[in-house]
Amino acid sequence: MKQHFLTLPKFSMRFLPIWRRHLLVWWKVAIPSILGHLADPLIYMLGLGYGLGTLIPEMGGTSYLLFLAAGTLCYSTMNSATFEALYSGFSRMHHQRTWDAILNTPITLDDIVLSEILWAATKSLMSGLAVLLVIWILGMSHTLLSLWTIPLALLIGLCFSALGLIMTALAPSYDFFMYYFTLIITPMMMLSGVFFPVDQLPSALQSVSAVLPLTHAIDLARPLLNGNIPQHILLHLAVLVAYTLAGFYLSLVLFRNRLSK
């Protein structure tokens, strides 16, 4: 690997036309996309929430439905960013050669990777808004503090798109992403307190949970939906930002290496 692949990214507004391109593509499939963003959390929350909720009247000091709502908001935003960065990102880079077309213009790879992260985070934001809408419509949360989950959804999106792009940069084909889902995303869902509190886990797994970004996202979202100010806000934000920056930098270095060939 060459030395200059390691240089820090140079940011510019040149990412914006690429972001607008992705928006225009999305616009053509906006209706099914929005329906999907709404239906998935609705089905999960109603199915699991009402089903399990009758058996488990309370969890972590709230109704099980609201407990699950915070988890759902976080993992839905995580999934949106992850799918976009992995499958759609790989399609644009490899299959459709959209990146090749863009690289022949005055736009650089730094701009492209930044636009991918911002676009995947935009999808997360849409997904987070949809879940929040469902939460409001079902009357699960009435607090204005719940509005803070909107910027949180964006941050979760940035974090998981940056992490997902590392996989995209390494992937020889779409099949490769199954490793990421099986080994990272699915265990993370079980270990981060989406469905049950982390303190139910054996202590060894609790320490694993403590370093997972989804755990920190949920630790912010759950009190916000309950109407409480979260504890250790700066710590949780710092972890999410650190994953975002590290993921962005590492994916960029890997993309530079991959695409210079």
Binding site: R14, P17, I18, R97, T98, T105, P106
Partner: peptide, 22 residues
């Protein structure tokens, strides 16, 4: 190898590409 945007019309391809040049 053609790398046109398959999700776009002919005119949209030109519009979106022109934006990359500022």
């Amino acid at each position: 190898i053609d790398n046109l945007d398959p999700d776009f019309t002919v005119a949209e391809n030109l519009l979106v590409y022109g934006r990359y040049f500022g």
